[in-house]
Deep mutational scan, measured.
Amino acid sequence: GALPANLDDMKVAELKQELKLRSLPVSGTKTELIERLRAYQDQ
């Protein structure tokens, strides 16, 4: 599914939920979580 547009405004817990939905690792800082989601979306 498409990512929420406001990733930077989301809480870390919400970002981790998005990562879990995509079976991605949820470790790292908020910035790393956002980068991981964006990289996944670009595939």
Score class of each variant (00 low, 15 high):
1 G>L: 03
1 G>N: 06
2 A>D: 15
2 A>F: 11
3 L>F: 14
3 L>T: 01
3 L>H: 15
3 L>K: 07
4 P>N: 06
4 P>V: 15
4 P>R: 14
4 P>A: 12
5 A>N: 14
5 A>D: 11
5 A>M: 15
6 N>G: 11
6 N>R: 10
6 N>L: 08
7 L>V: 06
7 L>Q: 01
7 L>N: 00
7 L>A: 09
8 D>S: 08
9 D>P: 03
9 D>V: 13
9 D>K: 15
9 D>M: 11
10 M>P: 02
10 M>N: 03
11 K>Q: 07
11 K>R: 09
11 K>H: 07
12 V>P: 03
12 V>Y: 02
12 V>F: 10
14 E>D: 05
14 E>N: 07
15 L>A: 04
15 L>G: 02
15 L>R: 00
16 K>P: 02
16 K>Y: 08
17 Q>C: 02
17 Q>N: 00
17 Q>S: 10
18 E>S: 05
18 E>V: 07
18 E>W: 01
18 E>Q: 05
18 E>M: 05
18 E>L: 04
19 L>Q: 03
19 L>A: 10
20 K>W: 04
20 K>V: 10
20 K>L: 11
21 L>T: 12
21 L>W: 05
21 L>P: 02
22 R>N: 02
22 R>K: 04
22 R>Y: 03
22 R>T: 05
22 R>S: 02
23 S>D: 12
23 S>T: 09
23 S>F: 06
23 S>N: 11
23 S>G: 15
24 L>S: 03
24 L>M: 09
24 L>D: 00
24 L>I: 03
25 P>Q: 07
25 P>M: 03
25 P>V: 04
25 P>D: 06
26 V>P: 14
26 V>S: 10
26 V>H: 05
27 S>Q: 03
29 T>D: 07
29 T>Q: 13
30 K>M: 04
30 K>V: 02
30 K>C: 04
30 K>Y: 05
31 T>W: 05
31 T>Q: 08
31 T>S: 09
32 E>Y: 01
32 E>H: 04
33 L>A: 05
33 L>C: 09
34 I>M: 08
35 E>G: 11
35 E>L: 11
35 E>P: 02
35 E>Y: 13
35 E>A: 14
36 R>A: 08
36 R>P: 09
36 R>C: 08
37 L>C: 03
37 L>K: 03
37 L>G: 04
38 R>V: 07
38 R>E: 12
38 R>H: 06
39 A>K: 15
39 A>I: 10
39 A>N: 15
39 A>T: 13
40 Y>A: 15
40 Y>G: 14
40 Y>E: 13
42 D>N: 14
43 Q>L: 02
43 Q>C: 10
43 Q>W: 14
